[in-house]
C-alpha cells in the first residue's frame, strides 16, 4: 500500500503530460502542441455544437417527470462552424463540448476547469468538473456567464483546461452491463436517468407530503 502511495505523482506537469500524450493519454487534436500543453494542464478548445434552452417550452425541470422526449422539447441543438462566434448573455446557460476528444487510461483521472482569463469576465465553463479514469469522449461543458456583459465566444478558442492526475487503478475488472455512449457533442440533460427519484417519491408518500 505504502509503495502505491509513493508511486503516485499527483497532478501531471508538462513533461509527464507530454510523455503520457505519447503513450496512453488521448487528447485529440491538439492544434498548437507548443502552447496548448502548459506547465500543469492542457488547454481545451470550444467545440462547434451547442445545446441551448427553449424557455418557452417547459416550466420546471422535474427529474421524475422528464423523458427523452420532453428534454428534446426543452433543449435544442445549435450547430456552429469552427471560428464562428457565439454570444453568451449574463446568466445564460449554454451546453457546449470540448473540440478535443479525450481518452483517459485506467490510472489517470482529470478535472476540467475554467481558464482564469475567461473566468475574470464571469465565464464558468464547467460545473461537473471531474473526469473518471477510463472515460472517453468530448467533454460536455456547462457555460454560464456570471458577468454583467454578454461574452463573445469563438468556436475553437482555448476556454478550458484539463488538469490530469494519477489515479489508483481498480484491481478488479469492472464489468459494464449497460451500453456505453462515447460522446462527440454536448449531451442533453439526463437528470431523469437517476432512478432514485422513484424511491424518494415513496418517502414523500410515507411522510404524507404526497398522496397515493
Amino acid at each position: 500500500m505504502a509503495k502505491e502511495i509513493n508511486n503516485s505523482v499527483g497532478i501531471l506537469t508538462e513533461d509527464k503530460l507530454r510523455e503520457r500524450l505519447n503513450c496512453d493519454l488521448i487528447v485529440r487534436p491538439i492544434l498548437d502542441n507548443k502552447k496548448q500543453v502548459s506547465e500543469g494542464s492542457i488547454n481545451l478548445r470550444l467545440g462547434t455544437k451547442f445545446i441551448t434552452t427553449r424557455r418557452t417550452e417547459y416550466g420546471v425541470l422535474s427529474p421524475s417527470e422528464l423523458s427523452a422526449f420532453t428534454i428534446r422539447k426543452f433543449q435544442t441543438k445549435l450547430y456552429y462552424r469552427f471560428g464562428q462566434k457565439i454570444l453568451l448573455h449574463p446568466n445564460q446557460l449554454l451546453l457546449a463540448s470540448t473540440f478535443e476528444f479525450i481518452g483517459l487510461p485506467p490510472n489517470l483521472s482529470a478535472h476540467v476547469l475554467s481558464r482564469s482569463r475567461y473566468g475574470r469576465a464571469g465565464l464558468i465553463v464547467a460545473t461537473a468538473t471531474y473526469v473518471h479514469p477510463n472515460w472517453k469522449g468530448t467533454l460536455t461543458l456547462e457555460l454560464v456567464n456570471y458577468g454583467a456583459a454578454p461574452i463573445e465566444l469563438e468556436c475553437g478558442a482555448q476556454i478550458a483546461q484539463l488538469v490530469v492526475q494519477e489515479a489508483t487503478p481498480l484491481k478488479r475488472k469492472t464489468k459494464k452491463t449497460k451500453l456505453v455512449h462515447i460522446p462527440t457533442e454536448p449531451e442533453f440533460v439526463e437528470m431523469d436517468k437517476d432512478k432514485d427519484w422513484e424511491l424518494l417519491k415513496l418517502f414523500r408518500k410515507l411522510s404524507g407530503l404526497e398522496e397515493n
Partner: peptide, 13 residues
C-alpha cells in the same frame, strides 16, 4: 458519430 468527429478534427488540424 466518431467517424464524423474524426473527419472534422483531421480537416481542422
Amino acid at each position: 458519430e466518431l467517424l464524423f468527429k474524426s473527419i472534422e478534427s483531421s480537416y481542422i488540424l
